[in-house]
Computed example of a mutant assay.
Amino acid sequence: MRTLLLGHWDTGGNLVVSASRRIEDDDEATVAELVAGQGNNAWADTFDTDNHRAAIDAAFAQYVHETDIDGNDVSETLIDQTTGLRHR
C-alpha cells in the first residue's frame, strides 16, 4: 500500500494537504484520476507507507523542510487539513 496526499501550495509558500488516500501499489489509474481533479497550485505525491502520519512526515522532509547555509531552520509550514496538524 501507498498513501497519496493531495493538496496545494498557498500564497504564503505553505504546503496545504487537503486529502489523503490509501492506494494499492500498482493502482496508477486511481492516482491519475484523483490528481486530474485538482485545481491551481495543486500538489500531489505518493509515499511508500499505508500510514497517513508517516506520509505527512515524508512530505514535510521532502518538500517543506529547509535549512540555510548555517544550519538554521528556514522551513515554511505543512498544514494538514485532514487532522489539523501544522508541521514546521
Rank of each mutant, 00 (worst) to 15 (best):
M1I: 02
M1Q: 09
T3Q: 11
L4H: 09
L4F: 03
L4C: 07
L6M: 15
G7V: 00
G7P: 00
H8Y: 14
H8D: 03
W9T: 02
W9Q: 01
W9P: 04
W9V: 00
D10Q: 00
D10K: 00
T11I: 05
T11L: 10
T11F: 07
G13H: 09
G13C: 11
N14T: 04
N14V: 06
N14W: 03
L15F: 09
V16N: 03
V16Q: 01
S18C: 08
A19G: 06
S20I: 07
R21Y: 15
R22W: 02
R22L: 14
R22E: 13
I23M: 15
I23Y: 00
E24Y: 03
D25H: 04
D25T: 02
D26R: 09
D26V: 12
D27Y: 08
E28D: 10
A29D: 11
A29K: 13
A29W: 08
T30C: 10
V31K: 06
V31Y: 14
A32T: 11
A32S: 11
L34S: 09
A36E: 13
G37H: 04
G39N: 04
N40I: 10
N40F: 12
N40L: 12
N40H: 10
N40G: 09
N41D: 08
A42Q: 04
A42L: 09
W43T: 08
A44F: 12
A44R: 10
T46M: 14
T46E: 09
D48E: 15
T49C: 09
D50P: 12
D50G: 06
D50E: 12
H52Q: 09
R53S: 04
A54P: 01
A55I: 12
I56A: 10
D57K: 15
D57I: 00
D57W: 04
A58V: 07
A58F: 04
A59V: 08
A59G: 10
F60M: 04
F60T: 02
F60I: 05
A61G: 12
A61W: 03
A61Q: 12
Q62A: 12
Q62I: 06
V64T: 01
T67W: 00
D68S: 05
D68M: 03
I69V: 12
D70R: 02
D70F: 14
D70W: 06
G71L: 05
G71M: 06
G71S: 11
N72V: 08
N72G: 01
V74R: 05
V74L: 01
E76Y: 01
E76G: 12
T77G: 07
L78G: 08
L78S: 06
L78F: 10
L78R: 01
I79R: 10
D80G: 04
D80M: 05
Q81V: 04
T82C: 14
T82P: 07
T83Y: 02
T83P: 02
G84L: 06
L85R: 13
L85E: 13
R86K: 14
R86P: 02
R86E: 14
H87Q: 11
H87N: 05
R88T: 03
R88M: 05
R88I: 05
R88S: 08
